[in-house]
Design a protein around this nucleic acid. Structure first.
Length: 346
DNA sequence: TACGCGTGGGC
DNA sequence: TGCCCAAGCGT
């Protein structure tokens, strides 16, 4: 029978030798008399960016944000539109809006709370992120449970119950493993193990530091865990994006703060329900192509229509061609702009 | 509780 | 190619 108390020391010993080097991370320090702690601001910024997002995608964004706004006070004072533009391309744009709201709340209270409960009350900080900041930045003995930890624990204990029903059970098991010593390094070690060894497919059990503690490995079912409830089918949707030119400028709109691509710059388009009507004021529209885009919960095929307005538009706002910043657009709108730009050049 | 919410990479 | 996945949160 496995002894839960040996898991953490074994994992920490592995982490001391194999921790990933990441821009927001302070390397593990065996000298616990004078531990080097990470800056809570940088931990928070990285954790929000990493929500449902890969390390590879986050790195360049983290560097830019940290350079533009080195402290939470700097970010709190930032211009909303610039923050949204810098976030463009990273996805889940509610995170960017919550990021600003959180920065302003933290600046107003003079700094980040140092407890999980205090952090949990801030916008964009939920069950996982509050525990992660408390553990990593303050070395509080909190248990982080992200997708990595769910997978590692489901395998260690051979939990067969499918997610999300299994979540409470996995949390309880994860809490039972969390040590009082170095909980911050332990939290990062669990996630590093899940990201590099205990991977979703083809786990590298042969080099896993916990191979002798793993029930799923013993039963030969590691790769099949955690089980997950079947996902709903993704519907196909169609719509139209309008690239409306007026002189040497193009019409953009800022999307409503809530909902899909909320708060982002976009070409005018309607509800993507297949019966989108053209915006008023154009002499003639011509179809220049289609773009396809995959969202979390539907597939989109968007007709791209271009036209020249005979008068200044009463909707949206004009952006001069020379000042259109592709990087400030969400991914879907980058595709539309690439198509329109190629059409303009031809 | 279950759904809405982006994007890119791996296989 | 299509599907799965990635340090989840808000409602």
């Amino acid at each position: 029978m496995r002894d839960n108390r040996v898991i953490a020391p074994q994992l920490l010993d592995w982490y001391d030798r194999h921790a990933r080097v990441l821009p927001w991370r302070v390397l593990p320090c065996r000298d616990q008399d004078s531990p080097v702690r990470a800056d809570p601001y940088r931990v928070w910024l990285s954790e929000v960016m990493l929500q449902q997002t890969t390390v590879a995608a986050v790195k360049s964004y983290f560097h830019r944000f940290a350079a533009l706004w080195p402290t939470v006070q700097d970010l709190a004072a930032a211009d909303d539109a610039q923050v949204m533009a810098e976030w463009a391309g990273l996805g889940y744009y509610a995170r960017a809006r919550n990021l600003l709201a959180c920065a302003r709340a933290v600046a107003a209270m003079g700094g980040f709370p140092d407890t999980r409960e205090g952090l949990r009350e801030l916008p964009g900080i939920g069950a996982y992120t509050s525990a992660a900041i408390a553990a990593i930045a303050y070395d509080a003995p909190e248990t982080v449970v992200d997708g990595n930890v769910e997978r590692v624990v489901a395998r260690l204990f051979a939990v067969q119950t499918p997610l999300p029903v299994a979540k409470p059970e996995l949390v309880a098991l994860a809490e039972a493993l969390t040590p009082r010593e170095r909980p911050g390094d332990y939290a990062q070690a669990m996630m590093d193990l899940g990201a590099t060894i205990c991977t979703p497919r083809n786990p590298a059990c042969g080099i896993c530091p916990l191979i002798h503690d793993c029930d799923a490995r013993a039963q030969g079912i590691a790769a099949s865990l955690p089980r997950k409830a079947p996902k709903a089918a993704k519907p196909d949707r169609t719509g139209i994006a309008w690239v409306a030119r007026h002189g040497e400028a193009v019409v953009f709109e800022e999307r409503p703060a809530k909902g899909l691509l909320g708060g982002m710059l976009a070409f005018p388009s309607a509800h993507w329900d297949g019966r989108d009507l053209p915006p008023p004021g154009a002499a003639a529209w011509r179809e220049i192509g289609h773009v396809r885009h995959v969202f979390t919960h539907f597939n989109l095929s968007l007709r791209v229509m271009a036209g020249d307005l005979d008068a200044a538009p009463r909707w949206g706002h004009l952006v001069p061609l020379s000042r259109i910043d592709r990087d400030a657009l969400p991914g879907l709108m980058r595709k539309v702009w690439d198509m329109a730009r190629a059409d303009l050049a031809s």
